[in-house]
């Protein structure tokens, strides 16, 4: 809860730190010269601008009082973490169980997480959707969707 008020500050610090890391990586690339720029030229120029402006932005944000962003006021954070968790589990499951099984399981989980009441209807909707999308992509568009690891 306390952290939510500091989001502006945390994000601006993270952006500054990321900029410093990217600048460090850019400096390792061959810069060339102004008359013969090489692969590191554009990354270095833009990461210098990034770090310089992010430092100003960071100072300005740190001097402001804590404030919760408007976009965060109505967010149900439990649902947010569950949404991310389902997405990550889906990505892992795709490698193991393939498209059909993992999409079906994760879609049921997400529909329930989003607050839909009936489990039976969630299962039926997920099953119909998964099969239809599989048929559309695999047969109509000829795209090879992930298969289970044993196939």
């Amino acid at each position: 809860m306390v952290l939510r008020g500091k989001v502006y500050k945390v994000v601006s610090i993270c952006i500054l730190l990321a900029g410093i890391v990217v600048l460090g990586l850019s400096l390792k690339l061959p810069f060339g010269s102004f008359s013969h720029p090489k692969a590191g030229f554009v990354p270095t120029v833009f990461s210098v601008i990034w770090v310089f402006l992010a430092a100003i932005s960071c100072v300005l944000e740190l001097r402001k009082p804590d404030k919760t962003p408007d976009g965060f006021k109505d967010i149900d954070w439990k649902k947010w973490f569950m949404y991310i968790a389902i997405c990550v589990v889906y990505l892992i499951l795709l490698h193991i169980a393939g498209y059909l099984v993992s999409t079906f399981i994760c879609l049921v989980a997400m529909i329930k997480m989003a607050g839909y009441g009936s489990l039976r209807k969630s299962i039926v909707i997920s099953l119909i959707f998964t099969v239809l999308v599989y048929l559309l992509f695999a047969y109509a568009m000829n795209i090879s969707l992930p298969k289970p690891f044993f196939m």
Binding site: L107, I111, A114, Y116, I125, F129, T130
Partner: peptide
């Protein structure tokens, strides 16, 4: 929306993979 948004999420993932 509790049905529509999850369905669109998985269409997005499938499209991104494709």
């Amino acid at each position: 929306f509790s049905i529509l948004m999850p369905i669109i999420t998985f269409i997005t993932f499938t499209g991104g993979y494709a």
